[in-house]
Design a binder for these strands. Sequence first.
DNA 1: CTGTTAGCGCCTTCAT
DNA 2: ATGAAGGCGCTAACAG
Lengths: 355, 355
Amino acid sequence: MTPTIADIAHEASVSQSTVSNLLNGRVNRMRPETRERITRAMEKLDYRPSRVARQLRTGNASIVGLVVPSVANPFWGSWARVVEAEALQHGYQLFLCNSERDAAREREYIEQMWSRGLRSVILATSLPDLGHLRPVIDRGLQLIAFDREPQPDDPNGVVNVSIDNELGGYLAAKHCIDLGHRDIGFISGVIATISRRRRFAGYRRALKEAGIPFREELLWADAGDGYGDVDSTQLGTRGALTLLSLNKPPTALVTVNDMYAIGACAAIRSLGYNVPEVSVVGFDDIVLASLYNPPLTTMRQPVQEMAKFAVGAILNHAEGDDTQSRQRVMAPELVVRDSTAPPNSWKKRNDHVPS
Amino acid sequence: MTPTIADIAHEASVSQSTVSNLLNGRVNRMRPETRERITRAMEKLDYRPSRVARQLRTGNASIVGLVVPSVANPFWGSWARVVEAEALQHGYQLFLCNSERDAAREREYIEQMWSRGLRSVILATSLPDLGHLRPVIDRGLQLIAFDREPQPDDPNGVVNVSIDNELGGYLAAKHCIDLGHRDIGFISGVIATISRRRRFAGYRRALKEAGIPFREELLWADAGDGYGDVDSTQLGTRGALTLLSLNKPPTALVTVNDMYAIGACAAIRSLGYNVPEVSVVGFDDIVLASLYNPPLTTMRQPVQEMAKFAVGAILNHAEGDDTQSRQRVMAPELVVRDSTAPPNSWKKRNDHVPS
DNA sequence: CTGTTAGCGCCTTCAT
DNA sequence: ATGAAGGCGCTAACAG
């Protein structure tokens, strides 16, 4: 049915090895004339080598796995695209899965990948504990953890790539403080991930530095039934509604990603205010952030560079080069746009607030 | 290193075939005691069957391929997630690629998939001509085309799933007309895809039906260097800027997807107007559409049902059931929100337009 | 320069 | 109830 290497060997009246040699670039081992004959045979039969067989034989899949929380969140979508481009450039394909931030699914997927012969996967998890993956890692899986700073009890050999989340949280909050805000809310899902935990830590540091006491009630870290990225906009909405109904509501909201921020903006409007009246800062700088109304102030992640590093680590690993750094922390960048402003305007209208 | 079936056969003092039998559910062919021993051996060695080997032997990968223009567009991101969920539910994994709407990449990817043993792929293309895929299809690849109504000279056996795009374009334009608009722009990338072509046709039908002559200049279908979905927001922006600088500018804009619509909204604001002053209708109803400011009027695609149908077709095909329908056209649904309004407000301010 | 050979890990008749 | 053997399509020594 589908032609195999044997078919074309036959067609070209040579042995399989010669065909294989051609296939693998060992061209100099045959005379041009033979080569020519083989090439023609391949064309005639429209031959495509079976990667499955090849992989079984060589053990090499040249596929990199990528597990993200959910490509429904545009940030993960772009991240996936960037990684794909980077991988492609080096002859790798991408195998993409959505974990929904569920440890069980993460594990399931990664073991699937392993059993399909993938030996390197980039995992966008921020779960503090990588214990559930230790079995596969011990077997030899190369794990590149994204969006997650290294932890003391991580399994050996894990490579980490992320921004400095603490700094991100700090800069976001500091920006609001510099603008004159004193009551700054922090909206997050459950703070079960390292990145969120650290962003929150940065936020607190900024407050402390400015001598602003932390008000517990200004932290919204409610659960919801899950904390997938699908409904992060909804969480942003709920968070903002909750915080703005406090007796002494915040005048600025720091959120944990742009989807939350957008949800929060919608909530603010639903309360009858416009956005810079209550300031909002997002995180990630997704494409839509700059096109939102008003354009979102946010923390940009250097996605390109991170993808380059992640894929680079895989390449080095594949080449047996183990001298590479096991970790990379990049700097987030504050992008100031119109969703943040001094607190005055809000205060002016403060008495209109529906009770 | 990694344990194979032989290792565990040895460990359990049975033959490989017995282990294999257990692996494949032929449990009744061995006495419980044997089975028990094998199970323990597998646990002890933490055995995972190699899917690669299995696939080479059986020819079955249980992976469905999915090719979309770009997961950076949230619509494709959600679509991918929905398909993944549906596939997963039936024991299939998803192999995801971004084509950037480039025929060469489409082809390249699909052949890669074929050579990896995938036998069914869902392709979100709208290219009118599927000729570049004929070779693989003839080999036996099952192709599910998404977002693309069937064409007369399609290769045999192609399954098509899409909404009625003509109807979508019609409803979008009709909505504007009903609101009182007479000058309605149509913003698209290059209209090289069937879906866009048909949406445009629907738009024209609505005009005609209302007795409004079509003004060529109100169609913006400029090229740009590519028409990937990455920069569709930019195209939306450019389109809106162009149309609004006409002598007799449109009072409403029908766009080809929500990303374009959002780009168009940004353009409108940059000209000093607010959005319902110039009405905008999007397409797709991505999550962010309802959270945009103002919330976007748009055409919703029944993503769930379409995914169900697409994956269902694959399942039936795998079971040799060939009695299934080869095509499904679903109805889009107009979702009216605040980005559309009667034309008055715009006209009122019309003389303020920067020249 | 080209062919022979021995697997990669698993599944599946066909015997026993 | 279990085992032996052949082969899926390809690669990589090793011979010739």
